[in-house]
Simulated scan of single mutants.
Amino acid sequence: MKYAIILEHVGQYSISLMREVLGVHRSGFCKWRDAPKSQRQTRREGVESFVKDTFAEFQAMYGAPRITKELNALGHRCSLNFVAKIMRENRRIARNGKAFNYGGHALTMHNVSDNLL
């Protein structure tokens, strides 16, 4: 986390100053910066793109359970919790359909005859 902060503020402050303030060694920062992406990070980015595409394809109507089923059907193995976490981090919320409305029926009161008593 400290390394990411340093990388984020490289243009504003010098690296040596940020290193001293955060208590990080230069060699550790350089090793972290030049390291290739891990297998887990690569897989996560792939699933994030599939979740984004599936979410857009179904016009934000599908939540994590349905998106998980779609991805598993396409051959991209992932769990419900994994997809839900990705959606939460990217602020993707499914829109539910409209609830049933028990409103008054318009025709019922129009066809009533007058009370003549």
Score class of each variant (00 low, 15 high):
N96E: 07
R95G: 12
R92E: 15
V47P: 00
S27L: 01
A35R: 07
M61D: 09
S113N: 05
V112G: 03
I5G: 02
A84F: 06
S27F: 01
F58N: 07
A64D: 04
N90F: 08
I5T: 03
H76N: 11
A94S: 15
N90M: 15
H105W: 13
A106W: 14
I15F: 03
I86A: 06
A64F: 03
V47A: 05
P36H: 07
A64E: 03
R40C: 02
S49W: 07
R43G: 01
A35Q: 02
E48N: 11
I93Y: 14
R66T: 03
L22T: 00
I93V: 12
S49D: 15
K2Q: 15
R77E: 15
I6C: 02
C78V: 08
V24C: 06
Y102H: 10
H110C: 07
Q39W: 01
R43M: 07
K31H: 06
G97C: 12
S27P: 00
N96L: 13
S27T: 03
N111Q: 14
A94Q: 03
M1G: 13
D34S: 06
L80M: 09
N101M: 09
T108R: 13
P65Q: 14
L7P: 00
E70S: 06
S27I: 01
A106Q: 11
L22I: 00
A99Q: 08
I93Q: 06
V51C: 10
K98R: 14
V21T: 01
W32S: 00
K2M: 09
Q39S: 12
S49E: 15
H110A: 15
G104T: 10
K2I: 04
P65C: 15
V10E: 11
